[in-house]
Design a protein around this nucleic acid. Structure first.
Lengths: 301, 301
DNA sequence: AAGACTTGATACCTGGAAGGTATCGTCGCA
DNA sequence: TGCGACGATACCTTCCAGGTATCAAGTCTT
């Protein structure tokens, strides 16, 4: 049995007239008659009662008709859903992001994605950058936002935002009075940094900056990314952070660094990955970008 | 798209190997490859990822696979149910019977039918014989049990039971003492009969018997079938009834009539009717017959 | 009652497509 | 680098879905 048989049978059952059914199917009557006969022969029982003035369905025919309609609809549904999946309009993406992005543009991005792709399930996972790379490769993540350079043959990536690195200082710090601070001016300061293992690439960028300025920072305290600012506020030291952390409520001041070193935010995914939803997510990020929240965008960068 | 495509795709998706899938399908590998390509071309997107060591499904392929399995199962189910319907193992019969049969063999018959055809819904309707004929022709009944001769081109019928007609007498009636009563002996008695309109054919049989015995019965009282016996018990007159009504609890005596006139119980259905369930019902009645309840069968007929 | 009409079935033909065989191309692997 | 595995391609054959013409049977009309 083929879908053809069911389609033909439904047409005949609905028209109760071979000629009209054939018309509706865009074919001639004799082959239609033959296909129905063939279907009946294969099943081994009659579906249609050939009574003279008009034909009718047998009981078995009625039963088959009900099922056949459902089956044909299921086929429609199946192709539609598969098509939507292939277009990325339906599916699942898991997105990893570092805690520093939580308050900075991700929500607007996700809102845009969800409104454009309401049937794609978005799974969000806040992870340290190092773990994001692992999770990406293992397939536990489809897209990750990572700061700093990324060089991995398994991963494809794209720059989504460049922002200045700024000095984070307690409000009463002696350098808080200056508009712009040369990095060499802080060579003797105690620093608060996150542990290198959490984001080696970004960590190395920061250390590299200091080295270029002629010193090796003295790390007075290590802390997870989110807690760096509190420790700076508490006077444990100063730090270097992306400008966007200004959005995070805190009692600190942030001062541009002379020479305006930049931090690069990357969006990364598995190089060979063909998940259509992932593709759509990347495409959307390309189109709308990763902007800071409204308040942040109006503030000076 | 045809079911063939879905069957092939499911095989490939399950084996993840064109060669093995082709084996399983009993065909060669090249046509299988081509059918899958054709399916993908028609859908407009890929279902299978041709990665080298082994092939895999695209997301769309996974979605389609889930649906395809269900669709193929639905097709199985549809043919099975249609087949069962065609065999009368599934469906519906409405059976009409006169009140006189309620206590006389119908229950055993229905039990047998339900245990053999548990998926056939049996609708029972107690109706006066005249209405049964109307209901049969109108399609509101599929089978009817009717007493007496039936001559109707639209209806087919079959004799299912012959039983003696007996005189129903009050226990203290003068003829109750006799073993066997000639009908001529009751020519002067008042009679209790049901209204002719309720069962004209059977009524005419009774009148005909009297006429043959040389008299026209004086009908002292008319009553619906079930009430005839009460009226006889109350002394309104005597009556002639099928022997099986002896099963009905009552204070009467029943006496065989000289010459042993018989009543015929017929099973009738629409001549052209092709309902398989109706057919099975008729077949089963042919096989097991319509017997009186256990108590009735051991009593003398 | 006879003929015209309707409508499904049959006969026969044709083109296309499904399936087969042989072979190629490509990717891993030893 | 050659070999094996496996999907793709080329080409052929067969079969069958669909087309046209016509038949057959039943209905309706006049």
């Amino acid at each position: 049995m083929e879908l053809r048989h069911l389609r033909y049978f439904v047409a005949v059952a609905e028209e109760l007239h071979f000629g009209r059914a054939a018309d509706r199917l865009g074919m001639a009557q004799p082959p239609l008659t033959r296909q129905i006969q063939q279907l009946e022969a294969e099943l081994g029982f009659a579906l249609i009662e050939r009574s003279r003035p008009r034909i009718g369905l047998t009981r078995a025919g009625e039963v088959l008709l009900n099922h056949a309609r459902g089956i044909l609809q299921s086929v429609e549904l199946a192709t539609r859903e598969a098509r939507r999946t292939s277009r990325g309009e339906r599916g699942r993406v898991s997105v990893g992001y570092p805690s520093s992005l939580a308050y900075s543009g991700l929500t607007a991005l996700l809102q845009a994605f969800r409104s454009r792709f309401p049937d794609v399930e978005v799974e969000l996972r806040e992870l340290p950058p190092a773990e994001q790379v692992t999770a990406l490769k293992a397939g536990r993540l489809d897209v990750a936002f990572i700061r700093g350079p990324l060089d991995d043959a398994e991963l494809a990536s794209e720059l989504v935002r460049r922002e200045p690195l700024v000095l984070a200082l307690p409000a009463d710090h002696r350098l808080a009075a200056k508009k712009r601070v040369p990095l060499s001016a802080v060579s003797a300061e105690p620093f608060v940094f996150f542990p290198r293992a959490r984001a080696p690439a970004f960590f190395d960028v920061l250390i590299g900056l200091c080295r270029d300025a002629g010193f090796l920072p003295r790390i007075a305290q290590e802390a997870p990314q989110v807690d760096v600012l509190s420790l700076v506020a508490a006077g444990f030291g100063i730090s270097i952070v992306p400008a966007s952390v200004r959005e995070t409520p805190s009692q600190l001041v942030f001062r541009p660094i002379l020479g305006a070193p930049m931090s690069e935010l990357l969006m990364a995914w598995r190089a060979g990955d063909s998940s259509p939803s992932r593709h759509q997510f990347v495409e959307l990020v390309r189109r709308v970008g990763v902007h800071r929240s409204r308040a942040g965008r109006s503030a000076p960068a």
